[in-house]
């Protein structure tokens, strides 16, 4: 059974078709790239996959369950985590708080436990403090714990988003242009982190605008243009296809 599958996914606005009959599936463990020219509908597709927007038609199934109409937090609860283009880092929280806040099922995040300062809440908080620091250290943010989210560089923000996502124990990660706004020296770091996470068993779907960045690391490329999938295969196969070349030339 595929980990993620969509069937005839559509998204219309008044007069505008952003996603048009998209169907594909992703198996557990894959590292898949989603590419296409600007306006192809990639981010809208992501929004529909993760509950940020409701599709006009079609279904999304994650691990066998229909998640089409679930709100974003429902997707996160099931292990489907997404990152945001131009940083989903919360600017008014510190780096460490950004990671801590992602911890799921924290008793301290319920009103009663917070006011009563129960032991459950206190112990959980101590535990995640350690976990957060470990994650931040792995992503080389160990001397930035108390900096505010908006004080980081583009590359650091991306790494912070990875750290935060891992706090949620994801099964599937959807990365929206993780290399946008990252300076060339840090790009290598970011891509190797992505492959590391994939090696540890996390299935990953990445949107990127530039094929070159992705070709090195992905097993498979899906190409979108005008809301539709126009190619789906190994990087070598896909790059040859005429339609793909046309789509990129046309922009």
């Amino acid at each position: 059974m595929a980990l993620l599958e969509t069937e005839d996914l559509d998204k219309h606005y008044s007069g505008l078709v952003a996603v048009d009959g998209v169907s594909f599936s992703i198996e557990s463990g894959e590292l898949v790239g989603l590419i296409g020219p600007n306006g192809a509908g990639k981010t809208t597709l992501f929004d529909c996959l993760t509950g940020v927007q409701k599709p006009t038609d079609g279904t999304v199934r994650f691990d066998g369950t229909d998640v089409t109409d679930l709100p974003p937090h429902g997707h996160a609860e099931r292990g489907m985590i997404r990152t945001f283009q131009h940083s989903g880092v919360l600017p008014t929280l510190t780096v460490k708080e950004n990671v801590l806040v992602a911890a799921p099922d924290h008793p301290g995040e319920q009103m009663f436990h917070s006011i009563a300062r129960t032991d459950d809440a206190k112990t959980f908080e101590e535990d995640i403090q350690g976990r957060a620091e470990d994650l931040l250290d792995t992503f080389e943010l160990e001397d930035r714990y108390d900096h505010y989210g908006d004080e980081l560089s583009g590359g650091q923000r991306q790494l912070l988003e990875f750290a935060r996502s891992l706090m949620l124990d994801p099964t599937l990660m959807l990365l929206d242009e993780p290399l946008a706004g990252v300076n060339p020296t840090t790009k290598q770091k970011v891509t190797s982190r992505i492959t590391d996470m994939n090696d540890e068993g996390i299935t990953i779907l990445i949107i990127e605008h530039d094929i070159e960045e992705l070709v090195e690391i992905v097993d498979r490329l899906i190409v979108m243009a005008n809301g539709q999938i126009i190619a789906d295969g190994t990087p070598a196969d896909v790059v040859e296809k005429e339609r793909v070349i046309d789509a990129y030339l046309g922009e």
Binding site: H73, L93, A121
Partner: peptide, 26 residues
């Protein structure tokens, strides 16, 4: 007490960005 602890952290996250906060499972 409500805002000093983890509950307050979630609230501040919501204030920073509702969409992102929902996406991380809140």
């Amino acid at each position: 007490r409500l805002t000093d602890g983890p509950y307050g952290r979630v609230l501040r996250a919501i204030r920073a960005d509702k969409e992102i906060t929902d996406t991380i499972g809140k």
